[in-house]
Design a protein around this nucleic acid. Structure first.
Lengths: 232, 232
DNA sequence: ACCTGAACACCGTTCAAGT
DNA sequence: ACCTGAACACCGTTCAAGT
């Protein structure tokens, strides 16, 4: 299961003394490494979507043979896992003077989470069915700690966390997949208009064109938080 | 784009008079039809998951050559679209005497929606990125109409619908993917315990093992509905 | 109108070597 | 320790026919 080179931490970024910085001669590639593979996988996913990530294409971009990848990585699945987690790092809430409120912290983290996933539209739909990497676990830990300090009882903690997780995931996955296809969406709304006898209400409200996603996200999130941890 | 035989409605289920019911001679298959293809695709997906649906395997089960499928269907994508929508039919709320309350109707529809998707665990993660079929549109229409009658203003209608959609999708996708792998989940929690120095709070609450999914779903849904359409 | 087999252009990955 | 090319066992789909 575990990849051979998984734990390897390439330390070549720690330059010793004043040795020559590794300026890239055009055409000569730096050596393969887990970091380069993951970074390039993210590039590829951003550019071409989930189906665009192929081992051969990845190797091409890295200037190596396909099979070289398999030294650093067990299989394609692991590439997905690593690319996904690499995109979800969290740097914490802005520390302006004093941390304002637990609620502000939670909202910030969840909005940042959503924004991170929307910057990489392939990531949201991948997350639920993949292994939970350290960055995701860190977010959950932070969320849990914050809610706990805010007074949420231990018995209610898991429900609160999963409700928020579910809401964020649903909102982001939907948004990301609608994002991918602006034309498709217009086409869908047109099809809806043609069928307006069957679906008069959603046709009238132009459901498929409405796009205040950010506002809707924030509003629903507030409702959830009101219920989960009432402001006292 | 449109498949050649898409609109075909095989009417052979309407028996004329007392003709012999189509008892299957073992080995002789009924003729191919869109319905049979879709039904078999659902079987295959239920049994083997998303990656288990291959055109060749589907053809095998149907007792036909692979390429025969392409007469009824444009490509594999269309098989997914049709299988998905076929699984999401809604029969409406139980009509016991009087329809109780708009809120009961909404909750019933959304819980039924979730249950339908959980009966076919591959469906939830597929839904957001596929075409909206008639059954899904019907649910959205019903939801919209009910909320509208409940007094939700036109301007707030789309936000309300999408919030609920997002919540249901997120909850179901998460639940379904955790469902797929009971062992994996235990393994993940074990890994978490090993790393408990980094994630003490979620380790202590045994976040990854908690499984009152149904209760959590209902609770969060109530919070959302409270916010979206306050009971007067 | 409906079905078919052969063939094509891909995939991920195994294996047996190379340095 | 790291990289490689040839080969295998698959895929979805095109095409040119068949009935």
């Amino acid at each position: 299961m575990a990849a051979k080179g998984s734990g390897a931490q390439s330390k070549q970024s720690q330059r010793i003394g004043v040795s020559i910085p590794p300026v890239q001669e055009p055409g000569s590639e730096p050596p393969l490494s887990l970091e380069r593979i993951v970074a390039t996988a993210v590039e590829l996913l951003d550019a071409q979507g989930v189906d665009g990530l192929k081992m051969r294409r990845l190797a091409d971009r890295l200037g190596s043979g396909v099979m070289s990848l398999y030294w650093h990585v067990a299989n394609k699945e692991e590439v997905f896992d690593l690319a996904l987690d690499s995109v979800l790092e969290y740097r914490g809430p802005p520390q302006i003077v004093e941390s304002p409120s637990w609620r502000g912290d939670v909202v910030h983290m969840l909005e940042d989470w959503r924004a991170s996933m929307l910057r990489h539209p392939w990531s949201a739909s991948l997350l639920p069915c993949r292994a939970l990497g350290p960055n995701i676990l860190s977010r959950l830990e932070l969320l849990s700690k914050t809610l706990s300090r805010a007074g949420v009882a231990d018995a209610d903690l898991n429900v609160a966390i999963w409700s928020l997780w579910n809401y964020v995931m649903g909102a982001t996955i939907t948004r990301a997949s609608f994002d991918l296809s602006d034309d498709d969406r217009a086409a869908a709304q047109q099809r809806l208009t043609r069928l307006s006898e069957h679906y008069p209400t959603i046709e009238r409200s132009r459901l498929l064109l409405d796009n205040d996603w950010d506002g809707a996200f924030r509003k629903g999130l507030d409702f959830l938080l009101d219920g989960l941890a009432p402001r006292q």
